[in-house]
Computed example of a mutant assay.
Amino acid sequence: MAKLNRTVTVYEQLKEKIENGSYSPAESLPEVELATEYDVSRNTIKKALLMLENDFYVTLEPNKGAKVRSYSKKEVLDYLQLRVELEGFIVRLAVPQFSDEDISRLEFIFQQMGVCCKNNDLLQYSALNQQFHAIIYDVCPNRAATDLLLRLKAQMRKYNGKTILVPNRDTRSHMEHGAILEAIKRRDPIQAEAKVRAHVESVRQTFDDYFSLLF
């Protein structure tokens, strides 16, 4: 049991570093160095890396070892195409469940996003953007859909925040979130779905246009 716990601990720590960008896409993960860093056996590292491979965080190649998984432009665009469908489905189910308090929280976050746009605070804008969508996910009654989306977003976390670096993307994003918020306030699930889909499609188009500059 202790060995299993150590493996899970290393797995979780490596996964967090991949998700937060401490390890870059395609970066090598040498077993010997990791074993020294985490003060565990190479066998424990091997098991943790296998778990990460199963969850699509790393790739394992014979005689080459492990690397952080990287994604091609097509793979990122395919992922965003799937996000269009999932995000739209989730918000459509969520809208009838929104309380006045939930909407007030969205309004406050939206206002703070506007402040970030004025101050060119892209890092904080991205954090608020995540909080805005997290409220929608929390309200949605279909946990299978939200869990699937959150797993996908975690795997692609290194890519998710890149579009905000495109000039004026924060302003356009803020307008798109405003349209989503207005549809939610009107308790209109069809319009909310349409606005969310348009927002993610806009993100996808930005990736398509600027991918070579962002990566």
Rank of each mutant, 00 (worst) to 15 (best):
K3A: 14
K3L: 11
L4D: 14
Y11D: 00
Y11E: 13
K15I: 03
E16C: 08
E16T: 08
G21R: 06
S22M: 01
E27K: 01
S28V: 05
T36V: 10
V40A: 07
V40C: 08
R42Y: 02
T44C: 05
T44W: 04
T44V: 12
K46F: 09
L49M: 03
L50P: 06
L50F: 03
M51S: 15
E53K: 04
Y57T: 04
V58N: 06
L60G: 02
L60I: 10
P62T: 03
N63E: 14
R69G: 00
Y71F: 10
E75W: 13
E75T: 11
V76C: 07
V76P: 11
D78T: 11
R83T: 12
E85Y: 15
V91N: 07
A94T: 00
S104P: 05
F110S: 12
Q112M: 14
N119W: 08
Q124E: 14
Y125G: 01
S126C: 07
N129V: 11
H133C: 01
Y137I: 00
Y137F: 07
C140K: 01
C140V: 03
P141A: 03
R143A: 00
A144S: 10
A144L: 07
T146A: 05
D147Q: 02
L148V: 09
L149H: 01
L152E: 14
L152C: 04
L152V: 12
M156S: 06
K158W: 04
Y159G: 01
N160G: 03
R169P: 09
T171F: 15
H174T: 12
M175F: 11
A179I: 15
A179C: 04
R186I: 03
R187M: 09
R187E: 11
R187S: 13
D188N: 10
I190H: 09
Q191V: 11
A192Y: 00
V196P: 00
S202V: 05
V203S: 12
V203N: 03
Q205N: 12
D208T: 07
D209I: 14
S212L: 05
L214H: 00
